[in-house]
Simulated scan of single mutants.
Amino acid sequence: MSAVIDVTGLGVRFKRNRGARRSFKDLFGGRQRRARPDDFWPLRNVTFRVEPGESIGVVGRNGQGKSTLLKLVAGVLLPDEGSVRVTEGVAPLIEITGGFVDDLTVRDNVYLTAGLHGMTKSQIDRRFDEIIDFAEIGDFVDTPYKHLSSGMKVRIAFSVIAQLEEPVLLVDEVLAVGDRGFREKCYAKIEELLAGGRTLFFVSHNEKDLRRFCSRGLYLDKGGLVLDGPIDAVLDLYNQDYGS
């Protein structure tokens, strides 16, 4: 079976202290500041494959490259070493309120955002009521987006992305936002999508969610892939290393 995500020798390099200025003392104080490398590698030498229909959870401490990996898979970032090959379309639940325009109404934002993700106007027309009903903001359809609460913004954004028919779901902590009732609604929607054969690539710190949705895990630490295995084994090792 052909992998939907094929990552080989992946590395990405960022600049440290970009834009930092030397102080007056550094320049004229008579001492030379010790040189420090400007580059650091949040990920390096990472290799794995994801088969169609798999549910993968990505775990690790903050700053260990989890969200960076997700953005590389999504195509938002490009690698400096190795390769990322994604053979199917992706539905990115990553910073999902990005791209919404404050001064446009909710209605206009739905058409704009869904269109940017590849849905046609006729598809959006057919699903518009379902998107609004799922988000539970029917009274605010013609309200400027900027007047919505943060929770309402997440609800409408999730509702739009959940309508995409792309085979691969990329999810980054988005389920941590919103009230408990809506989170459960999102969980049920994700389970429905997974039952339909979707592939899930899920970054989270929530162990309960990881065990609920994922059968396999990737444990990232110090820029490398420590363990690729069953989600229970991955979480057990992570908890052993850093505590539950």
Rank of each mutant, 00 (worst) to 15 (best):
E136F: 03
F28I: 13
R211W: 06
L194T: 01
L69A: 06
A233H: 13
E191T: 02
G99W: 07
F182P: 07
F128G: 07
V110Q: 06
G115H: 09
R13T: 15
I5G: 00
I94G: 11
I124G: 06
T97V: 11
S2V: 12
G98I: 07
E51I: 05
I161N: 02
A176G: 12
R36G: 09
G224W: 03
E88S: 11
G11N: 09
S159H: 02
L10N: 10
R22P: 04
G138E: 10
L210G: 07
G151F: 05
D125T: 03
V171T: 06
V4Y: 03
S2N: 15
T199P: 03
G98N: 10
G181L: 07
V90L: 03
Q240F: 12
D221H: 12
N239D: 13
V76C: 05
R126G: 09
I5W: 03
G89Q: 08
K153S: 01
V171L: 15
R18M: 14
G151V: 07
V177M: 10
R22C: 10
L69V: 04
Y238Q: 11
V84S: 06
F213V: 02
R49W: 01
A74R: 06
A20Q: 14
L93M: 15
Y111A: 09
F48Q: 05
A162C: 02
Q64P: 08
F213I: 01
H117F: 15
L116C: 05
L164S: 08
L218G: 06
R212P: 01
L164I: 09
S159V: 06
T87F: 02
G197C: 01
A3W: 09
T47H: 07
G118C: 12
G229A: 15
K66N: 08
L72K: 11
D38Q: 13
A188F: 03
I161R: 02
S149L: 00
I161Q: 04
E207H: 11
A157L: 04
P79N: 11
V59W: 10
R126V: 11
T113R: 14
R49Y: 05
A3F: 09
L78P: 01
V177A: 14
N17E: 13
G65F: 09
L220N: 10
K208T: 15
L170S: 02
L227Q: 14
E191W: 02
S122N: 10
P37A: 13
R34T: 14
T87C: 05
F100P: 00
L112A: 00
L93V: 13
L104G: 04
E184P: 01
G196Y: 01
N206P: 00
Q123T: 10
R16V: 14
R127Q: 12
A188V: 00
R33C: 03
L77M: 12
Q163C: 10
G151H: 06
F201T: 05
G197H: 03
V171Y: 04
Y242L: 14
G9E: 13
S244F: 09
K71M: 07
R21F: 11
R180L: 14
F100S: 01
G60F: 13
A233E: 15
E184K: 07
L78T: 15
N45C: 11
V73L: 05
S23C: 05
L227E: 13
K189R: 15
L27Y: 07
